[in-house]
Nucleic acid binder design. Sequence first.
DNA 1: ATTCTTTTTGATATAGCTTATCAATTTCAA
DNA 2: TTGAAATTGATAAGCTATATCAAAAAGAAT
Lengths: 143, 143
Amino acid sequence: MSKHAKEMEILKEHLEKHQLKFTRQRELILDAFLKQEHITAEEMYHQLARKDPHLGLATIYRTLNLFCEAGLAQARHFGTQTQYDNVSHKGHHDHLICTGCGKIVEFENCDIERLQEEVATKNGFTITTHRLELYGLCTRCRH
Amino acid sequence: MSKHAKEMEILKEHLEKHQLKFTRQRELILDAFLKQEHITAEEMYHQLARKDPHLGLATIYRTLNLFCEAGLAQARHFGTQTQYDNVSHKGHHDHLICTGCGKIVEFENCDIERLQEEVATKNGFTITTHRLELYGLCTRCRH
DNA sequence: ATTCTTTTTGATATAGCTTATCAATTTCAA
DNA sequence: TTGAAATTGATAAGCTATATCAAAAAGAAT
Ligand SMILES: [Mn+2]
Ligand SMILES: [Mn+2]
Ligand SMILES: [Zn+2]
Ligand SMILES: [Zn+2]
């Protein structure tokens, strides 16, 4: 049984349901993706260039977006770059981002989530999504 | 005394301090900017085209970025578009954004801010900036 | 295994938004 | 009034992501 059997199964189910095909590229990209917590399309492109020099950048983008539709990934826009977040094994969370070294730390805070709902209700809004990012310096970069 | 005398003064002080010049375009753009809470460069371009059809889009961008440096504006990236936020008369705040009609509501919540600091400290981070946006539907768009 | 339809891929063009370039113009201090 | 320095407007270029399209691959049916 492969290391990423469960996620591979989720992908295959999504593919079947939408009459899409299982390809060598999709398998390759999923394997690489699941080894990371957060990765950009560009990083993945360079990383996979070693395994398959002919893999196109457009295919990387298309496939990562496919993973988003299948619920395995989420696109996150941090600063200027777009990180694809491997959410196959985790629930909702927000991020701390170090502007020094690029380190990303995930966190969950129910109190903040609850206060957000309160703010929305007070203003007559119904929240569908939100975005909370804390930018700063990590311990190492502060020194 | 002009309606935007105070802000005009802030701009002039910034210009002097940085050996920049006070121009007709900067005055025109500041006047238009201060009438809005949030505006995109593109919107401002079209709005001012009536008053001065020769005003270039690059000048709009340059000038709005100048206002950011002078502390009169802040660039905010909501969804795909960049809104310039008129912060001349207000302190820190976050936003509720209606994905139906584009309405933007500002809010301040000390409890959320405090919890953010807590989260950062717990993870060894020192926050320099943050970003909190709540996306959803306003009362009108929900019906 | 072969055929055949549909989807996918890779190379590249294009889009959308913002900044860079640069000659001509304007500002403003001397 | 003069002249150095900054600004402007038109447009090219940069950057990231998507669109295009002919060739290739997938996979169901035979
Ligand atoms: Mn994450
Ligand atoms: Mn605002
Ligand atoms: Zn760091
Ligand atoms: Zn609305």
